[in-house]
Structure formats: C-alpha cells, structure tokens
C-alpha cells in the first residue's frame, strides 16, 4: 500500500502542497487582518512579501561581502522584518491614512498604486533579474530518510521544508498568544468585530492599526523569506503571483479569522498540488495548465455557498 500509493502521494504531492500552503497561510494572515481592521483588500501585500525577501537577501549579501559570514536566511530576516514594517507604516501614514473616511474603493486604488510603486522601485534598485538566494539542490534530509525508512514509510524532505513548516507553526503559536492573551491583540480582535464599539470602549484605533501593520508585516516577510527559501531564488513578481491565492485563502478561512486564513492557505496549497495527482489512470486529474485556476474555483464556490468562510468570518 505504502509503496504503491503512499510513497508518491505523501512525498511528491502532500508535503509540497503543505509547504506551499504554509507560505499562502502566512501571507493570508496579513491580508485577513488588514481586511477586517482597515476594511480594504490590500493589493500591495504581495509586494511587501517580495521586498522583505529582497531585504533579507541584501542582509545576507552584505554579511558575506563585508564580514565573510554566511548567515542563515531566517537570521538575516530580522532586519528585513524591521524594514518591511517600517515600510508598511510609512505607506499607511502617507498613502492610506488620507482615505480612512473615504469610500473603500479609493484606498483599494491607492494600494494598487503602491503595488506598482513598490515593485517598480525594487526593479529599479535591485534590477529585474533573478537573484540567487541559496544555490544548489536541496536533497532530502538523510537522517529523516533512513529513520522513516526503518518504519517502511520513507519520507523525503529537504531541510528547507522543515524550516518552513516549523517556522509557520511557531509563528502561529506566537500569534495565538498575541491575539488572545495580550491587550493589543484583544484590541485588534475588538476593532475587527466592530470598530465603532471598540472606539466607544476607549480603544485607540490608530494604535491598533499600527499593530496590525506590524503583525501583517512580520507574517508577510516570513512568507516572503520562506518562499525565497523554497524557490532558492528571488524575483520581483514573486509576491504578486502569490497574491490572488492568498486572497482566496483569506476568504476561505473567513475574513478576520487569522487561524481560518491558515487553514485556508493549507487547503489552497494542497488543492493546487493534488489537482494534478493522477487520481484516475496515469494522467493528471487536471491539466497542470489549469493549476492556477484551482485556487480561484475554490474561492468562488466558497464565496457563493458560504461567503463568511469556513470559520464564520466577518461580512461587510
């Protein structure tokens, strides 16, 4: 059973789906928080993911060139996170804040404009070419391979995938603590549920908004760095092409439900990879050319059947 079915399924379809799902999930957290607290779909979110990965690359390259140190991407991501959060807050202050009381469409347009500006900025500074993040091929971890093989369930997983999955779980746990145990987290949930009520009960909405950008920025950079670790390279449209599946994940999980977004991300990631599994016969179930459509189809079905998402998110 394992040899004929499970080995291929788990190693080549399930685990890759899980890894992509983790990246979608982290990106979707930021989107769902912005959507519920600031009430608009932030099109620039993918670009912050991307610029975070570029900052990380720069930190790694600087460390290598000036000190001869090769540092792990996750370590180099720390200054990148600070910069990306700074960027988010700067953009919010000068480009989104003027539209707080205006119709949503204007701030959506503004975020679309920022998407163009940030991406073109990166393209003019770092150049449009691909950058190598980590060269070479990530072979499956030998220890895990031989350990699991002794139970007859050989798992092939390179180290980078352990980092991505473990990192996502840790961020989730931290986020869970932040949202349920801290004052600021409770404030965020309150504003998300009802901004008017939160305001009346003495919560400073602007502070909450800044906190939202920080959490969103942190998760976005983490997603960007994980994506770059998985792809082992950087390029300037990597954020944008993740954006729509991340929206899909946020909607699937229910707007304003960060944990829903995580589940949504995992579902979308798995569905994309599993859609090309040869469920019947030898050919893929769906032509891989249609793979991108899977996320959208799930999203549309969800919107139509249950617009509040799997976890009863907010409806506007």
């Amino acid at each position: 059973m394992w040899q004929t079915f499970g080995f291929e399924f788990v190693n080549f379809y399930f685990i890759p789906g899980l890894v992509v799902g983790c990246i979608y999930a982290l990106g979707a957290i930021g989107i769902t928080l912005t959507f519920s607290i600031l009430r608009f779909a932030n099109f620039a979110h993918g670009e912050v993911m991307m610029i975070g990965a570029y900052f990380t690359w720069t930190a790694m390259t600087l460390a290598k060139n000036s000190f001869g140190l090769s540092i792990h991407p996750l370590f180099a991501a720390i200054p990148a996170i600070a910069l990306a959060i700074g960027l988010f807050i700067f953009v919010d202050r000068y480009f989104y804040k003027p539209f707080r009381s205006a119709p949503t469409i204007r701030v959506v347009m503004a975020s679309f404009g920022m998407m163009l500006v940030i991406r073109s900025f990166v393209q003019s500074v770092w150049g449009p070419n691909q950058l190598t993040f980590v060269p070479g091929i990530a072979r499956p971890n030998e220890t895990v391979k031989s350990f699991t093989n002794s139970f007859d369930i050989m798992i092939l997983m390179p180290n980078k995938h352990f980092w991505i999955i473990a990192g996502t779980i840790m961020i989730m746990m931290a986020l869970s603590w932040l949202l349920t145990k801290t004052k600021i987290g409770k404030g965020m949930r309150a504003v998300s549920d009802s901004p008017e009520l939160a305001k009346v009960s003495g919560i400073d909405v602007e502070v909450i908004i800044q906190a939202t950008w920080m959490v969103g920025g942190f998760c976005a950079v983490a997603a960007g760095v994980f994506l770059a670790m998985d792809l082992q390279m950087l390029e300037t449209t990597m954020g944008f092409r993740m954006l729509l599946p991340m929206f899909a994940a946020a909607i699937l999980g229910g707007i304003g439900r960060p944990f829903g977004a995580v589940i949504g991300g995992l579902v979308i990631g798995l569905a994309e990879e599993l859609s090309v599994y040869p469920w019947f016969g030898n050919g893929p179930l769906l032509s891989p050319g249609y793979k991108t459509g899977v996320a959208f189809a799930i999203m549309i079905v969800m919107l139509v059947l249950r617009p509040s998402g799997l976890f009863k998110g907010r409806l506007f």
């Binding site: 996320a295 139509v304 617009p307």
Partner: peptide, 24 residues
C-alpha cells in the same frame, strides 16, 4: 446569477478569479 449578491470587495475578488479562469 451566481455572484451578484456578493458585496463590494467580495464581488471584486470573485470577478478577478473568474477573469483568470476565463484566461486560463
């Protein structure tokens, strides 16, 4: 027929998805 009852941003995201599926 299917999507019109969705509210603003939701309709936006649904229509983005539909446009991408048409292109695919």
């Amino acid at each position: 027929l299917v999507c019109i009852r969705l509210r603003s941003d939701y309709l936006a995201i649904a229509t983005i998805g539909i446009a991408e599926i048409i292109k695919l």
